[in-house]
Simulated assay, not measured.
Amino acid sequence: MDTRELRFARAMVFAIEEINNSSDLLPGITLGYQILDSCASVPVAVELAFQFANGLQQLYDSKKGCVRSGRVTAIVGESGSTPTISMSRIIGPFDIPQVSHFATCACLSDKTQYPTFFRTIPSDQFQADALAKLVKHFGWTWIGAVRSNSDYGNNGMASFLRAAHKEGICVEYSESFYRTDPQSKIQQVADVIRRSTAVVVVAFTATGDLMFLLEELTRNPSSPRQWIGSEAWVLDQLKRVNFSRNGYHVSFDANGDPVAFYELINWQRNENGVLEYVTVGHYDDSLSLGQKFTIRRNISWADGGMKAGRTIH
């Protein structure tokens, strides 16, 4: 079971309840929801998209003693870019808006192909630029790169490689794989990493894919590597969404994308040896050029050392 997807679903339920209990977000409107599991499968995602396009099943309202059918006004999801693309191509012609919380492929910003798509996570184009600046800042000009063999990984890595080239960063290798590949393929990618001289690896991979690669690497560990990892209406109305909640601002640009904002997370062990996720900095694309990228806390490196951070201009 993917507990992260469960957390996403619970977050959506929480958000809907917040909206229904609020007097200023959608006054006079009550939202309902139905949660379906795509199992991270493109064929299942396509099947569910057709179900949504055909309308919901009839529901029995015990309070009113009647049967009613709901109408889908928007779809939240998918998490992966490839299933999201498949769903968007089906529901787009029906003018059903789709809002994804985790599909980051830059290709989804093309409104000619995905006219009803929105997302609350920035496009990978912004992430690729931020990653390239991060790598350049620490003087890593000789790196390796791995990616998921999917729309997310292939498009994201292509954007990163272009940004890295502009920053003068050289890439020793760029390998792709997918979690359903034969073990021999994943072992081949692991062997490339083991033989390489680059001590920094940039990974544009889904969590489910990276897990298989890391497990293979632990079977025959090489020298330590520093890993850098990547993240009609509820239709015209969505284009005008603009509100703040719990300290976060929500709005969409002309491509259906939000303003890019990333927390830079570093895995650190506390005094008890327990691994913690520590926010060491931020990347905020809404700020001026010299203020976008900021590191304010110490960073734990692959060799166990700590290095102080600083504001980057």
Rank of each mutant, 00 (worst) to 15 (best):
T207S: 13
Y173H: 14
V202S: 00
V199R: 13
T205W: 00
H165G: 12
A203P: 03
R194Y: 05
S174G: 08
V135A: 12
T141M: 10
V199W: 03
A206L: 13
S184R: 11
D129Q: 14
E172N: 13
T120K: 06
Y152F: 15
G139H: 12
A145I: 00
T205I: 01
A130S: 14
N155F: 11
I186L: 07
T180S: 14
R194T: 04
A132G: 15
V200Q: 01
I186R: 03
V200W: 00
R119S: 04
A158K: 15
A198E: 03
Q187A: 15
K133F: 09
T120F: 03
F177M: 11
V199C: 09
Q127S: 04
Q188G: 10
V202E: 00
E175I: 01
Q183A: 12
V192L: 06
L161H: 07
I186C: 06
K166A: 15
R194N: 06
A130N: 09
T120S: 12
I186E: 01
T197D: 08
H137C: 11
V189K: 01
D124F: 00
D191S: 14
V202Y: 00
A132T: 09
A164K: 08
A198N: 07
R195A: 07
L131F: 12
Y152V: 06
S148M: 05
C170A: 14
G208Y: 02
D129M: 10
S174P: 03
N149E: 13
W142Y: 14
I121K: 04
T207D: 11
G153V: 01
R162T: 14
D151Y: 06
Q125H: 10
S184D: 12
Q183E: 11
D129Y: 07
D129E: 15
S150V: 02
Y152L: 13
V171P: 07
D151C: 08
W140M: 09
Q187D: 11
K185V: 08
Y173V: 05
V171I: 14
A203E: 03
T141S: 13
Q188Y: 07
L134P: 02
H165E: 15
F177N: 01
F138Q: 08
V171T: 15
D151M: 07
S196R: 04
D181E: 12
H137N: 13
W142L: 07
G139W: 10
R162K: 15
I193A: 02
M157R: 11
V200G: 01
V201A: 05
R194D: 03
R162M: 12
F126M: 06
L131W: 05
G153Q: 03
